[in-house]
Amino acid sequence: MSRVPSPPPPAEMSSGPVAESWCYTQIKVVKFSYMWTINNFSFCREEMGEVIKSSTFSSGANDKLKWCLRVNPKGLDEESKDYLSLYLLLVSCPKSEVRAKFKFSILNAKGEETKAMESQRAYRFVQGKDWGFKKFIRRDFLLDEANGLLPDDKLTLFCEVSVVQDSVNISGQNTMNMVKVPECRLADELGGLWENSRFTDCCLCVAGQEFQAHKAILAARSPVFSAMFEHEMEESKKNRVEINDVEPEVFKEMMCFIYTGKAPNLDKMADDLLAAADKYALERLKVMCEDALCSNLSVENAAEILILADLHSADQLKTQAVDFINYHASDVLETSGWKSMVVSHPHLVAEAYRSLASAQCPFLGPPRKRLKQS
């Protein structure tokens, strides 16, 4: 649940008159999402009104509101027999009622949201009550392989729920002597030191190019640089560091992050930047690179990204790559990247197969709970 924001200063709310007192009302909304995959969808019983329910879910471990999704594969009634019906059901509720908006969509073979439908307002739910769409999607369109909505005969539904909580009022009075504290510009100011090479005390040599930097900042941000300058190493004695395995453009992006906490060109060089972040123990930059690479996972590059993640101990990226390969196994196994990995990294192939087997055979063990970014 997000923290209630402070109200904007009255002088910034309007260029008009300023009242002596004010009130700011925040209506709290808890948002969460749920993904439900139905394997072997074409084998569902086709009687009209037949119901399939998901397991229950909530916004978190401490949330007492429990929900589930309900599907009628062949419609709810005679009117909707040519459609799939989809509903959000409130299973248990400690209150007399709650209000919530919802959005349903289908994830296609690429994991993209399609055929989205959402409620136009927050509906009133009581325990045992459901709301949804009797005519969510035509069955003939859903079952047509050309539309790519049932890869490997799996129907994957994605649901986003927004639950309306209580409202909170914050009130106060205006004073004539309003003090406005300026925003912190530390990142910009440190970035200026790097860009202008002011007050530098060490030189970093990268592929024949020299960059002036500040030992204190490098040591504070990177345990690797800290070790170089702290001990009686040649880098500490000469205040000069030779860097041979990072390209200059990648190095500059890494230094921008060290000084400012930002990497504006990360998406263009996420793979190389991940390697640099791993070498210099820049954990936050490493996770930022993992996130960017996750966003660009595809059938063509899944094997290469899995190898990269394994090489640099990028655990979150590795998990996402394995899950992606499992979901698109029939396509990924035909790529040149996968065939190369079979020869060069057989242990990763074995890991992917083990994960695929456990996903398809849940009876082999208890269900695993899916539970950071600093």
Rank of each mutant, 00 (worst) to 15 (best):
E113T: 06
R3Y: 13
D144R: 03
E78V: 09
P346L: 09
A302I: 14
G111L: 10
K238H: 10
P367T: 13
M233N: 14
C159V: 14
P7C: 14
R284C: 07
A357H: 07
P7A: 06
L90Q: 05
A216D: 03
Q209N: 11
Y24I: 10
F158T: 12
K339L: 10
F251E: 01
I38N: 04
I307T: 08
D323Q: 15
T319L: 10
M48T: 02
P151D: 09
S340A: 14
K215C: 15
L308Q: 07
S226I: 14
V91Q: 13
Q212F: 15
G60W: 04
P9D: 06
S96H: 11
I305H: 12
L190C: 05
A275M: 02
L204T: 13
N326P: 01
R139T: 13
L88K: 00
L90D: 03
C361K: 11
K53I: 01
D77T: 07
E253M: 10
R124D: 08
S21D: 05
E46W: 10
F125I: 00
K135L: 15
D82V: 12
C294I: 12
H328G: 06
R368D: 08
F43C: 04
K110M: 05
I307P: 00
N72I: 14
S167N: 03
N40V: 03
L274M: 02
A314P: 08
P182T: 05
F102S: 01
S298L: 02
K64R: 03
G75S: 05
K28M: 12
N296V: 09
T114P: 09
V179N: 06
R221W: 05
L86W: 15
K135I: 13
H231L: 14
E249Q: 01
E195C: 05
A11M: 11
V4N: 12
L190G: 10
L84A: 09
E118I: 06
G208T: 14
T200A: 12
F125L: 00
I307R: 08
A292S: 03
F211Q: 15
C44Y: 03
R185V: 03
Y280G: 00
S92H: 14
C23H: 01
S42M: 05
F324E: 02
F251L: 03
V18C: 10
S330G: 13
K115A: 04
K110Q: 10
T335D: 08
E334D: 09
P182W: 10
E351T: 08
E232W: 14
S85T: 13
W338G: 04
M48D: 03
E234V: 14
S222M: 15
A350T: 11
L157S: 13
V163N: 01
L333V: 08
E79Q: 14
I217V: 13
E189T: 03
V246L: 03
Y123G: 09
K66M: 09
M341S: 02
D188W: 08
A314Y: 04
S42Q: 02
K180V: 06
L69E: 07
G60T: 10
N326F: 13
L348V: 04
R45S: 05
L364R: 15
W131K: 02
D201L: 00
L297T: 11
K215S: 09
M48S: 02
Q120W: 09
R70M: 15
L89P: 13
E247C: 05
K135G: 06
S92L: 14
A352G: 07
P8L: 02
R45M: 04
A61V: 06
V98M: 13
F211E: 15
K135N: 13
Q360A: 11
M228C: 13
L69C: 11
N169R: 01
V250D: 06
K53A: 05
S336C: 04
E97S: 10
H231E: 15
A314E: 03
R370Y: 07
V29M: 03
N39G: 13
A352E: 06
S15W: 11
R99D: 14
F199G: 15
F211R: 14
A314S: 04
F125Y: 13
A116W: 12
E145T: 08
D315Y: 07
C93P: 06
P362R: 15
A276T: 04
K372L: 08
K103L: 15
S330Y: 08
E300D: 09
P10A: 02
C289W: 00
A309C: 07
D310H: 07
P5Q: 08
F133H: 11
T175W: 04
K129N: 10
K95L: 10
A309Q: 00
G191S: 09
M178R: 03
D331H: 12
